[in-house]
C-alpha cells in the first residue's frame, strides 16, 4: 500500500529525514517510535502534504501512485488521513460543517453520491456513539476551547467519518488520560480492515498495549535504526532509546554532513 524509498526531507537547508525506507502493506499496523526530534512528525506531515518541507531525494508510492505529486486534498480523497499532533482550532466553522464538507468531497472523488443533511447526520451519529462522544460536539466550532483529550478524540471522529485506507496518527496518545487513550484505541481498532493500514507515530509504548502493531520501527536522527515486531516496543519501554540512538548519533548527523 505504502512504499517509502530512501526519503530525504529538509526544512530550508536543514535535513530532517536522511533516507527512510518503509513498506506498509494493507491490513498492517506499524508503529514509528523514537525520541523527540528524530523526525517522526516530519514524516507524518510530509505524507499528508504539508507545505514547507522539501523532499531532496527518494520517493513515496501509495496504492501505485506517486503520493508526493498529489495535493493534500487529493491525498485525503485517495484515502490518506493524518490525525494531527496539534489539531488546529477553527473558530466560526462548526465541526458538523467540516465533517460534512470533507466527507462529501471524499465521496465525490470516489464517485459516490453526496449525503444530504439527514443521511449525513445518521452516519455521523453512529461514529459518535462508537467513540462515546456527545452529539453536542458536532455543533461546536472545530476544536475551539476543546480540552487536549477532546481535540484528539475529534481527530479520531474525523478519521472514523472519512474511513481512510491509510491512517497516520501523529502522537495521538500524547496528553491523554487512560480512558481517553482507550477510546482512541477503540476508534482505531474499529477501523481495522484487511484493506486498510495504520501508522502510529508515538513516543511511548503505552498506546501499543491497546493497538497491537505488526511492526515497530525506531527512528533516530532521520533514519530508521531498528525494526522489529511488537516486542521491540516493550524492549524500548524497558531500556529507553539511548541504546539504539547512540549508534545513530555517533555517525555524522545529516546536519553535520552538509558540504
Amino acid at each position: 500500500m505504502l512504499e517509502i524509498r530512501n526519503l530525504h526531507v529538509a526544512i530550508g537547508d536543514t535535513p530532517i529525514l536522511a533516507g527512510i525506507d518503509l513498506e506498509v502493506k494493507a491490513g498492517e499496523v506499524h508503529a514509528i517510535m523514537g525520541p523527540n526530534g528524530s523526525g517522526k512528525s516530519t514524516l507524518a506531515q510530509v505524507l499528508a502534504g504539508r507545505e514547507g518541507y522539501t523532499v531532496t531525494a527518494g520517493s513515496v508510492r501509495y496504492l501505485g501512485q506517486d503520493l508526493l505529486a498529489l495535493e493534500p486534498e487529493a491525498r485525503a480523497r485517495a484515502g490518506v488521513f493524518l490525525a494531527f499532533q496539534y489539531p488546529l482550532e477553527i473558530p466560526g466553522v462548526a465541526n458538523v460543517q467540516l465533517l460534512r464538507t470533507a466527507l462529501n468531497s471524499v465521496r465525490r472523488a470516489r464517485g459516490e453520491p453526496e449525503l444530504d443533511a439527514m443521511d449525513f447526520l445518521d452516519a455521523v451519529k453512529a461514529k459518535l456513539a462508537l467513540l462515546g462522544m456527545d452529539e453536542g460536539f458536532l455543533y461546536r466550532a472545530v476544536n475551539e476551547g476543546f480540552s487536549g483529550g477532546e481535540k484528539k478524540r475529534n481527530e479520531i471522529l474525523q478519521m472514523a467519518v472519512l474511513e481512510p485506507r491509510l491512517a497516520i496518527l501523529d502522537e495521538t496518545d500524547s496528553g491523554l488520560d487512560i480512558d481517553a487513550l482507550k477510546t482512541v484505541a477503540h476508534g482505531v481498532n474499529a477501523l481495522k480492515h484487511p484493506q486498510r493500514a495504520v501508522i502510529l507515530v508515538t513516543h511511548y509504548q503505552r498506546l501499543l498495549n491497546y493497538i497491537v502493531p505488526d511492526r515497530v520501527h525506531v527512528l533516530a536522527a532521520g533514519r530508521i535504526v531498528r525494526s522489529g515486531d511488537a516486542s521491540l516496543a516493550l524492549e524500548l519501554e524497558d531500556k529507553g532509546y539511548a541504546w539504539l540512538t547512540h549508534d545513530a548519533e555517533s555517525q555524522p548527523t545529516p546536519a553535520e554532513s552538509r558540504p
Binding site: 488521513f81 464538507t101 466527507l103 472519512l162
Partner: peptide, 9 residues
C-alpha cells in the same frame, strides 16, 4: 492545510 488534509479543496 488542516482542512485540505480532510479532502476539502
Amino acid at each position: 492545510f488542516y482542512l485540505r488534509s480532510r479532502g476539502i479543496d
